[in-house]
Design a binder for these strands. Structure first.
Length: 152
DNA sequence: CGGGTTTGACCCGCGC
DNA sequence: GCGCGGGTCAAACCCG
């Protein structure tokens, strides 16, 4: 639920076209998670391996953009949404997802451009510590497009 | 019940 | 300092 597919028609579902790979650490604030919660939570459980969580995703951050009516693309992993915030100068919110696999702290955020609302920006952060669970049909399409772009 | 989402509070870095 | 922008938590809620 909660996908905004109702906003657009689902007809041309299989051209998610033009992907643009890009690492987003230039001068944007997508740098590292400087904001937000800093120190470990030290929840109720003994926080022993919680440190490695944040230090592992120190740098691996990648973003690409697609043209799609759906915000969420099936990339083969399972994600749990943990936040949504409005973005300045954007009509669309940004949603925050985390990999549901235990011990895997890969995050991703999804954001739709307000100026070109067909374009979805997906940003991954971290490395999965486990194999993929299922074949990602949509993502396969995306990968094809990506390679086409890269080859060019 | 067990998973996911919603949503406001909270937290933090930065600029004024 | 304060307020804003952005990232996260967590309790409530929802849905199979």
């Amino acid at each position: 639920m909660g996908v905004r597919e109702s906003k657009f028609d689902l007809h041309h579902q299989h051209h998610h076209h033009m992907i643009q790979e890009d690492h987003v650490d230039a001068n944007n604030k997508l740098e590292s998670g400087s904001s937000g919660r800093p120190s470990s939570k030290t929840k109720s459980s003994s926080g022993k391996k919680e440190l490695s969580d944040k230090m592992m995703m120190k740098k691996h951050k990648y973003a690409f953009q697609t043209r799609s009516q759906v915000d969420i693309l099936d990339d083969g992993y399972r994600w749990r949404k943990y936040g949504q915030k409005t973005v300045k100068n954007s009509n669309f919110p940004r949603s925050y997802y985390r990999c549901t696999h235990r011990g895997c702290n890969v995050k991703k955020q999804i954001q739709r451009l307000s100026k070109d609302e067909e374009v979805v920006v997906t940003t991954y952060e971290g490395i999965h510590t486990h194999p993929i669970e299922k074949s990602a049909e949509n993502f396969d399409e995306i990968l094809k497009q990506m390679q086409t772009y890269a080859t060019f």
